[in-house]
């Protein structure tokens, strides 16, 4: 990604421009299919059309600037991003499969710590587990708020 592009075309800017066009088209389509009309004044579709045009113009702006010189972003550590993503996904999965907040948060904690270069997995799991359990007890028991429960949480 970070290598200077040989052609003068700046690819990320181009992709963002095309993305904006796509969103604008979806918004226009959505507005055109609205059924409920306002009896007086403007309907709900007016804002959609306005923003659709606005996004279209921004898309055009991106296409133009894609042909100009752009500074490339600094290099990224994609492995670290992957670890954090894995952590976030584990929390989502834990809630999706009703495995509970504590398990999901523990995984999120130790995977994120791993992303930042920690290797002591066991220590992080224990720390994450203690923090997550503490939060769970505080919120569900003291503040009576429903954080998602799994088999472990039901023990309390």
């Amino acid at each position: 990604m970070s290598t200077p592009t040989a052609s003068r075309l700046h690819r990320p800017t181009l992709v963002i421009g095309i993305g904006l066009f796509a969103i604008a088209a979806i918004t226009w389509h959505d507005a055109a299919n609205m059924k409920i009309r306002a009896s007086y004044g403007m309907g709900a579709d007016a804002a959609s059309y306005f923003i659709s045009i606005f996004l279209g113009l921004l898309g055009l702006g991106h296409l133009i600037s894609a042909f100009r010189r752009q500074t490339d972003p600094e290099p990224s550590d994609w492995k670290a991003v992957l670890w954090v993503s894995l952590g976030l996904l584990s929390l989502i999965a834990a809630l999706w499969f009703d495995l509970g907040f504590v398990l999901g948060s523990t995984l999120l904690f130790c995977f994120t710590a791993r992303a930042f270069g920690r290797k002591a997995l066991l220590a992080d799991i224990v720390l994450g587990f203690v923090i997550a359990t503490g939060i769970f007890l505080l919120f569900n028991k003291v503040l009576t708020l429903g954080l998602p429960m799994g088999p472990f949480e039901r023990l309390f």
């Binding site: 028991k141 003291v142 009576t144 023990l155 309390f156």
Partner: peptide, 18 residues
């Protein structure tokens, strides 16, 4: 109140495993 809430919470927890 917080205290009684905690006690109540522990009681419900105790009951839940029966």
């Amino acid at each position: 109140y917080l205290h009684s809430k905690l006690v109540a919470a522990w009681l419900t927890a105790a009951v839940a495993v029966l």
